[in-house]
């Protein structure tokens, strides 16, 4: 805390992140004038556990933020989720939801539920998910998902979590490391 750093990149997540923020509050970490970036900070599980203990004005990121996407699939998904669980879906919930539809599409394309055939259909497949178009890169089978960044703002009146202002969506295919860089060989 005595270092003269301009900012801190914080990559802890889940329960560890909840612990980190609460302990940091306790020690006055957020009173310092630091530029803070939380790479997995916009997980709604973490935000609902922390409530207003998550400070305002810090950069939070996630693979999926529930009101970052203006499309029919997302609108239907968020509405169904809020109706069922009284809170907005996290990136984990979105991933689970999208994965089922990915399997569905791959099974329909393969015309069978046979594992290897479905796996082959998934490779290189594109699909529409709550967070826009997701493509499974052929060379390493990674799903190209676009990260969302925003700055924490006032508390949401219904969900008791921080809202995100200045939302930005970075194109997953552009920001992901290329296959050459990762050195992945299937």
């Amino acid at each position: 805390m005595n270092s003269d750093a301009d900012g801190v990149l914080i990559s802890v997540w889940g329960g560890d992140l909840v612990n980190f923020v609460r302990q940091a509050n306790n020690r006055g970490f957020f009173d310092k004038d630091l530029e803070l970036l939380f790479t997995v900070g916009a997980a709604t599980e973490v935000l609902s556990a922390l409530g207003d203990e998550m400070p305002e004005g810090v950069h939070l990121s996630t693979r999926y933020w529930y009101d970052a996407y203006d499309n029919d699939i997302n609108a239907a998904f968020v509405k169904a989720y809020v109706d069922a669980y009284d809170g907005p879906p996290s990136y984990n919930a979105e991933g689970a939801y999208a994965a089922i539809y990915a399997y569905k599409k791959a099974m329909e394309a393969a015309g069978t539920t046979d594992g290897p055939a479905v796996a082959k259909a998934l490779s290189g497949m594109s699909m529409e998910a709550p967070n826009g178009t997701v493509k499974f890169r052929e060379a390493d089978n990674q799903a190209m998902v676009s990260p969302n960044w925003g700055v924490s703002g006032p508390m949401h009146p219904d969900y008791a979590i921080r809202t995100l202002a200045n939302l930005q969506i970075f194109d997953g295919e552009e920001v992901a490391r290329s296959v050459e860089e990762t050195g992945c060989k299937l």
Binding site: G15, V18, N26, R27, E45, S48
Partner: peptide
Amino acid sequence: SGIQVVQPPPLLAGS
């Protein structure tokens, strides 16, 4: 399966 938080008693809060 979410994360829950318990606040310390007022006597032991803070630092």
